[in-house]
Every structure is written in structure tokens, then in C-alpha cells.
Design a binder for these strands. Structure first.
Lengths: 426, 426
DNA sequence: TCCAGAGATGAATCCACCC
DNA sequence: GGGGTGGATTCATCTCTGG
């Protein structure tokens, strides 16, 4: 059997046709023992894809998988690796199986694929990860180390400086004879962790085919990068809509795909002819790119019980409670913004969202604005609150005025002799 | 056996002394006999021998754990939960054990604790997570949902609208007969995910405590928040230096700790007797590094122009300006703290530091406290400011009162027809 | 008591619409 | 028009309800 082929049938049968020691990487996304049938229609309702994940019992499932995993091991090269995608329901059974077949010493990593996803309230923590077991066939296996960016909190100087141990065995930065720090060799970055933060294939993504359980190409990209070089052979015995094969093709690897469903094979074929890969904006830009607020505003909002809104020009957040049936919007006055402008933006955005009550937090007092601790704009149902900073400054100014006019000595080095000042605050 | 006790001995023996159905939460971080397995593997190169030998060990371990887990189940209340912290090498065996004892339907979550770690690259991905299994004793169990912020990429302002499905099963925004938007209900936020990003004890702190397996207190905080209320009983059968118990104590939970090591019990005792002043403050350094201010206080302080002070019981920070030559101290009232207590702590600490002017931010209003927007305690030169939350709640309550008494209809589906309300705020 | 179906759900891409 | 703003869309879910 030569590479780059799609095969329809039980992967046990097809695997038997494949030569021993011929495959570099196997990725499996087998049925998960969910005891249900998966059905999904394409967006235009033209096609329905389904597969059954129902079993007599765990043993039935275990045996089914064992036969196929054993064949997988046979066809792998000695330097080959297998990545098995699991979910909660069967993962410990699958890991036991892999341990039995490949040996516990060949477990290289337990990879956690972590993502955020549409949610719902439920009486547990929100399930937002899946597990991929990474085993090698032998001690000597292909592994391309991937480096990632240093985290923002990392002190780069620390990394780039050369280090040595001093006479006490302590770690110090190496300096030259004049006491200047010697820069160390160029660092490549942090080796990739076993927890992968890759966005879940968004419901709206073009990449979606309508096939259930479809995985993002980005996930497979990473696996292929780690375990293969160009020209190597990638095998997916449960290929479904063919994500693995598309990723392999785009990276110039050879591929073999197997699936029992004729429809799946057809779909995979058409995807391979015209591969669409959604480059995740989120991944490219990073989550911070979506955060449009300055640090001060962000901090202030965080100190309140509000839900922060990122994509609205007028509203910075909503309180987590309603007022007479409608949401309460909130805005923090921006540094370069007059009171009037802040108010205008908040009111017009709130109007669109049917917010009855609005809250504006004043962060600086311009010349034209009048002092008043808190006030309500009755015409607009707008509550205006001074920020703590504004409040504090206001009082301190008043106190300073008073102490000046009264010529009170306020500074004491002896705390037992504290004088009090009498004052009237508005 | 009553709560709040440290017991030295094999937890199997001690557990037998504990009443059935008496514990709300059990957290275990059991040892795994890595060493034994490791040694035996290096001693003998015969694959078969080491395999079977290893199995013998794992079975021993399995039996050892099973006896203890069974006792754990017995002492748990029907509504109780168990959180088992697993080492990589034993995790699937431990999960099988838990499945056997508690039943697979009582697995609530597989929690991934993810952290960043320094390491040289080896020929695998960088191992940077651990697993915690969360089982309940029965279908009906205590679970406090924790809500987090929405993702930055969420269009929060639009998902506040109510939705429905149209005749094609597609999701649409719901409108009334006039075509106006219908608002959704109050939003609480996103339920906490099962992947937790909590920093590992930093190497320095770890070095000093000498307790390599000590878990960050934030991790225990979260578990205790999820599974217990105040006054509930927390049990840690392998308590080590007592992190679980310290966390429980700080959160006003009762606790029982067990460990075989007399030294560990002694250390735990000294931490619990006086968690702040412990002479060997090495023990609290790890915790100190990550937990000094609770999150709310931290956020509030960040929104002010203050220098945050970490290790002062009375003062949270200083303003970056002076008042008549002396520093201005500031404190945020803590959630569990009365106004009087907060004031006392701030004043006594400020007195020591010779602060003339002190600022106290009130974060919640108790029954005994009087309402007033801002006031100055002239006797103590203390400025008292309500937090924004307090201020907002105060106003909304007043508004609600007014709208009730005046029988004003505040809810409009037509935004062009917004009624204003006339009110007088104090 | 169980099972099927509907409703609620937030993430994040896509795309219509706006200057 | 093109670059940006903001509205529409939909899911390897989960709870709840009704029969």
C-alpha cells in the first residue's frame, strides 16, 4: 500500500494491508464510548453525517480498540509515534490499553488540549479540555522540539545573561573584568508545554464541514510538527472528515486515511482537493488584542462586580444585576475624555441596548466640571460617581486648605502627641 | 472524634476512629511509590521481569490506597466530595480505583492544574500539569458554582438579548410584536473551567520551605470554596505540612489532618497555631508569595494610585503623595471584617508608622453601620470612603424604593419612550 | 422512573454595513 | 472603497420539563 490514499472500511481490515514498520506518525480520534449516535447536518442541510458510538459494555469497546491498536503498533516504524485523542468517558481505559500495548516506559506525554467554549450553567466545573496520549514505539523516536515565546512575566535579562556559580556555589551573573554583564548565548524560547491552548473550532469557522467531532487543523499541525519531517507518512485510522490528512498535505507529509463511512471518505476527498484552514485570529493576535481598555480602566472595572464589555464604544461593562428589568450599563471616563463626551457615549450606547439606568465613573475633574460627590442626572437616569482617586484628592485638598488657614501644625514625629484638626467637609 | 485536630499515624487507623457520614470534603495528595518502581527498574534490565515486578508494586499500591479510599468514602457525608491529587505515574490506576469505589457516574470533574515551570528541554514536551479527580459520594452533593469573567472575545452586549429558535431551528434574537428587542435575564458570568492556571510555588520559596510537595494555597482555596460552606469539615489524610488545614482555617472551615510523619505534624501544628507569626516563617513563605491580599482587595488597590504594602496587618498601601509631610495610609475593608475591626487595625498600624491621615474604604455595609456617602472621623484623622459597589448599591436601593412608592413604571420595551423618574437622593 | 425534546448557553468567526 | 465596528450565527453541552 502506497501513501496518500483514502480507504473506506473497517480500519482493522485496512491496517492489515499496510506494511510493518512503514508509518512515522499515527493520530487516532476513535469513538469515545459515549454510548450514543452522533448526527450532524451541514449548514445548508444538504448532507447528514453520523456515526455510532454505542457498545455492549466497556469490555466490548476495549477489545475493539485493542485489536486495532495492536495493528497500529505493527505498522509504525521503530522511530514512530502514536497520538491518541481521548475524552473523559474512556480515557483511563484507553490509557491502560496503550500501556499494555506500548509499555508504560514509552508514554512520552499526556497532552492536555485546553480551550474555551460556549457553556451553560451546570453543577460541575465547565468541561473544557481533552486529553491526547503520546506514546512512542521505542526508546529512540523522532521528536522535533518546538519553542514558544517567553511569557510576559519572564525577566528576559535574566535569561539572556550568562550565569556561573560563585565560590559559595550560588548562581550569579557572569561579568567581565570591568564588571560588565556578559550576555549569554541566544535562547530559543521556552520548550512547548504539554498543555495546549488552541481555540475550539468555532461554530462559525469556515473550516467546519458539518462532520461531528471535527478537530481544528491547528491541533494536528502541532502534532505533525512534533513527530514528523517533510515526506514522512502520517496515518489516521478513524479519519472522519479528514482533518489529519489535510494538515499533513499542507505540511508536505504523505498520508493514509481510513474510515468506515463512505460519506466521510467523500467529504475528506473533497476537503483534500480544496483545503480550507482557519487561521485563528485569537491565536494570532492573542487574547490581549481583544482588550481595548487602558490599564486604569481595566483595574477599576475589575474592582467592581461588573461584566466587562470589550466591543462597545460607549459601554465598558454591565452590572450583574438588573434594575427594574433592564441591564445597568457602566462607563469609566477615559483620561483624554471630557465629562460631557463620556456621558454622551454612554447614553447613546445604552439607549440602543435599552438600559434604563446608567452609571458613569468620573476619573478626573476638568475646569468646566462642577464638584459634587455623587449625583443623579434625572433627565437621563444617569448616576455619576467620583472615582476613589477623585474623592480622595478632593478631601485632601479641602483639608490642606483648612490646615493652611488655621495654621495647624500637622506633622508629628511623636505619635503620642497627635493633634486633631477640626474641619467641615461638604 | 471532633473537628480541628491533628493526628499522627497511618491514616487507615485514624480514619477508623472517625464517625461515618461526618465529613464534607476530603482532599488527598497521597504518596506514590515512585522510588521503589524506579529502583527496581534500574536494577534489572529484563523487560519481562521489571514489568511484572512493577505490576506487583502497583498492585500493592492499589491495595494500600483502596483500603484508605474506602474508609474515606465511609466518613464522607452523603453530600460530601473527594478531591484526589494524582501524580502522573499513578493517575490512571487511581482513577480506576476511584471509579471502583465511588462509581463512574460520580466522577464530577477531571481538574487539570496547569502551571509554568522552568526546565531544560528534553526529548518530550515540557510537563506542566497535574490532575485532580473530583468525585462526589452521591448524586446530590454540595457544589458552589464559581463564576468568572466572560472572554474578551465575547460580544457580551449582544448576548444580553433574549434568544429563541425560529421554524428552521436557527437561533434568532427574540423580539416582541412591535419588533423591539426583548432583554435577557441577569448574567452571572462564565462558570469556572476545569483547567486551572495557578502558579507553582516559586523555586525560591520552595527552596526555603524544604517542602517540595507543598501545594499552593490558592489551589486549596478554590477546592474549599467549591465544595464547602463556612463551618463545614475538611479532612486531609496525608496532610504533610498542613497547607489544606491552613487554607481551611483561614476560610473558617473545621479541619482534621492526618500524617504518618511526626515532623510533618509538628510543622503543621506550628503553622496552624499561629499562621502569621510562626517563628520558622519559612513555612509560610510559599503561601505568602501568592496570597497576601484577596483578589477583591488587590483589584481595588490596583485601581488607585497607591503603593501596595504586602506584609502589614493593618495597612494595605500608601498613597503616592504625602499629607503635610507624612504618609497617607489606606486600608480596604475585608469581606469577613466589620467596620470597627477594619478601623481599629488601620488606626493602630498607622499610628506606628506616624501616618497623620488614614483612609478606609468600606466594601460592605453591616447592620450596625450607618449610611453616609463619605465622612471624616475627626478624632482620628480618618477619611472613610464607600467603595463604588457600596455606593452603587445604595443608590439603586434608594431608586427602587422611590419607584415602588411612586408606582413608576420603569420597564419599557420601546426605547423611544423612556420615562424619567424624579427623585431626591441624600 | 425514565426518556425525548426543547431551551439556555458563550465563544469567536464571518460578514453586512458604516463612514 | 477599504478599514473598522458591531450584529448574526451555531455547537462531540447540559438542565429542565412533560408525558
Amino acid at each position: 500500500m502506497t501513501a496518500n490514499g483514502l480507504h473506506c472500511g473497517d480500519c482493522l481490515d485496512v491496517l492489515k494491508e499496510i506494511d510493518s514498520n512503514s508509518i512515522d506518525l499515527i493520530y487516532l480520534d476513535p469513538p469515545f464510548f459515549k454510548q450514543k449516535v452522533y448526527k450532524q447536518k451541514t449548514r445548508d442541510n444538504s448532507e447528514e453525517y453520523s456515526f455510532s458510538d454505542k457498545w455492549k459494555d466497556v469490555n466490548d469497546y476495549y477489545l475493539f480498540m485493542k485489536k486495532r491498536i495492536l495493528e497500529c503498533k505493527r505498522v509504525l516504524k521503530e522511530s514512530g509515534c502514536i497520538f491518541l485523542h481521548c475524552d473523559q468517558s474512556a480515557k483511563h481505559h484507553l490509557q491502560l490499553l496503550l500501556e499494555e500495548v506500548f509499555g508504560s516506559s514509552n508514554l512520552r506525554n499526556e497532552i492536555i488540549w485546553k480551550y474555551r467554549r460556549w457553556s451553560n450553567s451546570k453543577k460541575t466545573l465547565l468541561n473544557s479540555h481533552q486529553t491526547i496520549y503520546f506514546y512512542s514505539k521505542s526508546e529512540i523516536y523522532k521528536f522535533n522540539t518546538i519553542y514558544t515565546q517567553y511569557s510576559a512575566s519572564t525577566n528576559l535579562d535574566q535569561i539572556l545573561q550568562d550565569r556561573a556559580r560563585n565560590e559559595n556555589g550560588k548562581c550569579v551573573y557572569r561579568t567581565d573584568d570591568d564588571g560588565n554583564v556578559i550576555l549569554g548565548k541566544e535562547k530559543k524560547g521556552v520548550p512547548l508545554s504539554d498543555v495546549w491552548d488552541i481555540p475550539y473550532l468555532n461554530p462559525k469557522a469556515k473550516e467546519r464541514t458539518g462532520y461531528p467531532t471535527q478537530k481544528p487543523i491547528l491541533l494536528l499541525d502541532r502534532i505533525i510538527d512534533i513527530a514528523t519531517d517533510e515526506g514522512d507518512v502520517v496515518l489516521d485510522p478513524f479519519c472522519g472528515s479528514g482533518t489529519t490528512l489535510v494538515a499533513a498535505q499542507l505540511k508536505n507529509r504523505k498520508w493514509i486515511g481510513i474510515d468506515v463511512s463512505e460519506k466521510a471518505i467523500e467529504l475528506a476527498k473533497s476537503r483534500l482537493d480544496n483545503p480550507i484552514k482557519t487561521e485563528s485570529n485569537l491565536l494570532i493576535l492573542g487574547e490581549d488584542a481583544y482588550k481595548t481598555k487602558d490599564e486604569y480602566t481595566e483595574n477599576l472595572l475589575n474592582s467592581l462586580n461588573v461584566h466587562i464589555v470589550q466591543r462597545n464604544k460607549g459601554i465598558d461593562g454591565f452590572l450583574d444585576r438588573l434594575f427594574l428589568g433592564s441591564h445597568i450599563s457602566i462607563r469609566v471616563q477615559k483620561p483624554d475624555e471630557s465629562f460631557e463626551k463620556a456621558k454622551r457615549l454612554l447614553l447613546s450606547a445604552s439607549n440602543k441596548k435599552n438600559c434604563q439606568l446608567k452609571i458613569l465613573i468620573v476619573t478626573h475633574i476638568g475646569n468646566e466640571d462642577s464638584y459634587s460627590p455623587t449625583n443623579v442626572d434625572l433627565e437621563n437616569n444617569l448616576l455619576v460617581i467620583n472615582s476613589h482617586d477623585v474623592e480622595i484628592n478632593r478631601y485632601i485638598e479641602q483639608l490642606s486648605e483648612i490646615s493652611k488657614t488655621d495654621n495647624i501644625e500637622m506633622y508629628h514625629t511623636n505619635s503620642n502627641n497627635t493633634k486633631n484638626y477640626q474641619t467641615h467637609l461638604q
